[in-house]
Nucleic acid binder design. Structure first.
Length: 643
RNA sequence: GCCAGUGUAGCUCAGUUGGCCAGAGCAGCUGAUUUGUAAUCAGCGGGUCGGGGGUUCGAAUCCCUCCACUGGCUCCA
């Protein structure tokens, strides 16, 4: 047996080491500085402990804080450190699972009689740091299922036992031990706890065991940790900054929308500034849709229950939604419209359709009402009454791909026009192990799913795939965008549906003079006006794209002696379709500037004696400062070039 | 819906062993100031301390309950 192994590094170089060398030893052989930064290593594509011996020829990539997987190792180990501290502070506490997340880590625990609240964080954090300073190593040891069961049965950790019992008989399990804490864990972990120099517990939350709301609720403790105190300070500062971009805060400050307890939870009220913004967005999309052959329609906000019995929505959501509206007539019930599709199916089906008129694209900014659980409501991004930029395309099976691609083009156009460059395209498929949650045959699902997969592949769209995220009637392509705090929200959506046309018995007459069933594509590039504007507000921190902004400029006269001149300037800009107002209050110029800055009006045009004499304006850009004097026509040109 | 936390003026917040008529800044109103690149000065008005119930001589403060909001979980047609 050869005692030497070949290690291939990411740059392609191959080095020889003794069998059993660890990634950490490899790092040390390269430089001690590198070794100090190594958190874990990718060995043949799998993330390993940096200290785990490598026994054969392998490709090795050393992972540091700058690698996503390196960071995940750091936070995963921090979760174990948290668990160790919790066990020390709350003896007898039971453990669920404790993974790394995209911005830290958590551990789900059952504290028994204890109650963990944020008041206890300080002592837990102190304990964590105390334990970290012991520089304990994370020791990996393989264990059989039987041994693992024995260990955790003796410890009395029933959650771990449940996890172990789910594993295969011959599956290799591992334990990790640091200090006095032993956990069932596949790893990997840090070389030692010494790397963890700064910890901060963020919050506690309830979390259902195994994500199942019929099961026991665990206490989930969230935290974040760093290699340096300074990094933690910076992170907390970043969070503070992110809070300033919160659309709920900005929406209040900019007068976009409000809520009223009397009107009801989750029912946003659009204020004048928000309405102006929203109208501009709607007008933009309406124009784009007309260009692309959509036909706008308007449908009522309520419909007879029978409509939703036909669509399947009654059976799926009836009990959990706004309850039916009764009429004086015995037995007659109406429902608030929870979506527009059934109405549009009725429009399609109200007269015979020829293949010659397909695809039929029916569009509506349709307001819908859904009784979302109270704990789910969130600013504008999750509400109970909202307006979808909805449309349904009815087409022949042959047209599905082309229509899907057209919609994809429109959706991407919308996102780019709004300045969303970073989004995730998610293919949301049915959960194959949970088919009873969905309606429609396997055959139709396969068709619909492959239509989406093929079309996205054809245009080279980078996608991720999630099982179980489909709508109950069909798969979706969802466009996900992150808010200020990194939470992901679904905006645009495109859905391919073979099922509803069946339920509504929709037809068209083909070239063969036979009846055929159309395919339906549901799509909403914004998703909903509410959520879109909420996420857009955070994305641009309240500084909306210039073409969307209600007040594009404010003219600030130094005193009211210059109001006549200001009015002339405003009229000139109006001729150029540039919107704005004159701040004619008798306030100091400094005060006017401050107020206009706070309102995030993009341009301030300051006029006084100098400007009137020179027939120009002093231009100040919001957030940036004085740009100097310009003639008004020059400003108009400069402005239009920015659009 | 579940777990935890929060709720004081239009906004942002003080008011921590229960104790004089509950405070500040900004905003608002009135007056003066005609102002040069992020807050002119003075005066004035404004609060069922989220709602209801209880404990107490006395409650913004303690307890119960409901509501809303925040962070998660579950859910998201």
């Amino acid at each position: 047996m050869d005692a030497q192994i070949n290690i291939t590094l990411p740059d392609g170089s191959v080095r020889q080491y003794e069998k059993g060398t660890s990634a950490m030893q490899i790092a040390e052989s390269i430089s001690s500085g590198l070794a100090r930064n190594v958190l874990s290593a990718k060995v043949n594509g799998e993330v390993w402990d940096a200290n785990r011996p490598i026994d054969g020829d392998s490709s090795v990539q050393l992972l540091t804080w700058d690698d996503k997987d390196g960071k995940a190792t750091f936070w995963h180990s921090s979760a174990h450190l948290l668990a160790e501290a919790l066990e020390a502070v709350y003896p007898g506490i039971k453990f669920g699972t404790g993974p790394a997340t995209s911005n830290g880590f958590y551990y789900d625990v059952d504290p028994g009689e204890h109650k963990i609240s944020s008041d206890d964080f300080k002592k837990i954090e102190d304990k964590m740091l105390e334990l970290a300073r012991q520089k304990n190593t994370f020791d990996r040891s393989p264990i059989t299922k039987e041994e693992a069961l024995k260990y955790f049965t003796e410890k009395g950790d029933e959650y771990k036992i449940e996890l172990i019992e789910k594993r295969g008989e011959d599956e290799a399990l591992t334990l990790y031990k640091q200090g006095n804490f032993v956990d069932l864990c596949r790893g990997p972990h840090l070389p030692s706890t010494a790397k963890i120099k700064a910890v901060k517990l963020m919050n506690v939350a309830g979390a259902f065991w195994q994500g199942d709301d019929s099961r026991q609720q665990m206490t989930r403790v969230y935290g974040v940790s760093f290699q340096k105190q300074k990094e933690l300070t910076q992170y907390l500062h970043m969070l503070e900054e992110a809070k300033k971009r919160d659309h709920r805060k900005l929406g209040k400050e900019l007068g976009l929308f409000m809520f009223s307890e009397k009107v009801g939870q989750g029912l946003p009220i659009w204020l004048p500034n928000g309405t102006a913004l929203r109208s501009r967005l709607e007008d933009f999309l309406k124009a784009e849709q007309i260009k692309r052959g959509y036909q706008p329609v308007i449908t009522p906000h309520i419909a007879n229950k029978e409509l939703y019995v036909t669509s399947g929505h009654w059976e799926k959501y009836g009990e959990d939604s706004f309850q039916p509206i009764k009429t004086p007539r015995e037995g007659e019930v109406f429902l608030l419209k929870p979506m527009n599709c059934p109405h549009h199916c009725e429009i399609y089906g109200h007269r015979p359709r020829s293949y010659k008129e397909l695809p039929v694209r029916i569009a509506e900014f349709g307001t819908v009402y859904r009784y979302e659980q109270s704990g789910e409501l969130h600013g504008l991004t999750r509400v109970r009454g909202f307006t979808q930029d909805d449309a349904h395309i009815f087409c022949t099976p042959d047209q599905v791909k082309e229509e899907f691609l057209n919609v994809l083009e429109l959706t991407q156009h919308v996102l780019s026009k709004m300045g969303f460059e970073e989004f995730t395209a998610q293919i949301s498929l049915r959960d194959p192990n949970n088919k009873e949650k969905y309606i429609g045959s396997d055959e139709l699902w396969d068709k619909a799913e492959s239509a989406i997969i093929e079309a996205t592949k054809e245009v080279g769209l980078k996608t991720i795939t999630e099982l179980g995220e489909a709508a109950f009637y069909g798969p979706k392509l969802d466009f996900m965008v992150k808010d200020a705090l990194g939470r992901s929200w679904q905006l645009g959506t495109i859905q391919v549906d073979y099922t509803l046309p069946n339920r509504f018995e929709l037809e068209y007459i083909g070239a063969d003079n036979q009846t055929h069933r159309p395919v339906m594509i549901h799509r909403a590039p914004f998703g909903s006006m509410e959520r879109f504007i909420g996420v857009l507000t955070e994305h641009c921190a309240g500084r909306f794209p210039l073409w969307l902004t209600t007040d594009q400029f404010a003219i600030l006269p130094v005193s009211d002696k210059y109001l006549d001149y200001a009015n002339k300037l405003k009229a000139t800009l109006a001729e150029h379709d540039i919107r704005g107002y004159i701040d004619d209050r008798t306030e100091s110029i400094g005060k006017k500037i401050r107020d206009t800055e706070v309102k995030k009006v993009p341009f301030m045009l300051i006029v006084g004696e100098k400007e009137e004499a020179a027939k120009n304006v002093s231009v100040r850009k919001q957030g940036e400062g004085d740009l100097g004097a310009m003639e008004i026509e020059a400003f108009a040109k400069y402005f239009k070039d920015l659009l």
